[in-house]
Amino acid sequence: MPEQWRFDLLKKNTTEKARERRGQLARNLFTADPQVDGARILLLDDTFTTGGTMASAAFALKERGATCVVGLSFGRQLGSDWNDNKELISTLPDRDLIIGDCVVHNKGRAHFGAIF
């Protein structure tokens, strides 16, 4: 069991939106605190789109000396026009997106019974 969860060991250096650097490793996107040296890090993110943000954060942590970085995201964004998602999307049941049921588009107020 970890002694303490820390939320202040990684700082984002820009306010630019992820779509500006989608899918790219941005080496200076994050700065990791020197205290991560030798640490095992669990990196949490709300949404995984292309992995660029997660990879950039992991890069900064490893560069600063973290021995292990494991990334976990709670959601995966899919685009029907993304070649690597076409097969996965084709396996999903046919259903329309109801924007009012989407937590992202409805300012965090989703009707979960309608999603599942």
Results as ranks from 00 to 15, higher is better:
M1L: 10
F7P: 04
F7K: 13
F7A: 12
K11Q: 13
K12V: 12
K12L: 03
T14A: 08
E20F: 13
R21P: 03
R22I: 01
G23W: 04
G23I: 03
Q24S: 07
L25G: 08
A26S: 11
A26R: 11
R27E: 15
N28Q: 12
A32I: 02
D33G: 09
G38V: 02
A39N: 03
L42C: 07
L44N: 06
T50L: 00
G52N: 09
T53G: 03
T53M: 05
M54K: 03
M54W: 00
M54T: 09
A57S: 11
A58R: 06
A58C: 01
F59R: 11
A60K: 01
A60C: 09
L61D: 08
K62Y: 04
K62G: 05
E63P: 00
R64G: 04
G65I: 04
A66P: 03
G71K: 01
G71I: 00
L72T: 09
F74E: 02
R76F: 06
R76V: 12
G79L: 10
N83P: 15
D84N: 14
E87C: 02
I89H: 06
T91R: 14
P93G: 10
L97M: 10
L97P: 06
L97W: 04
L97T: 11
I98N: 15
I99K: 15
I99M: 14
G100E: 15
G100H: 07
D101N: 14
V104H: 09
H105Y: 12
N106R: 08
G108R: 09
A110P: 09
H111A: 15
F112K: 07
F112V: 13
F112Y: 13
F112N: 09
F116S: 10
F116E: 12
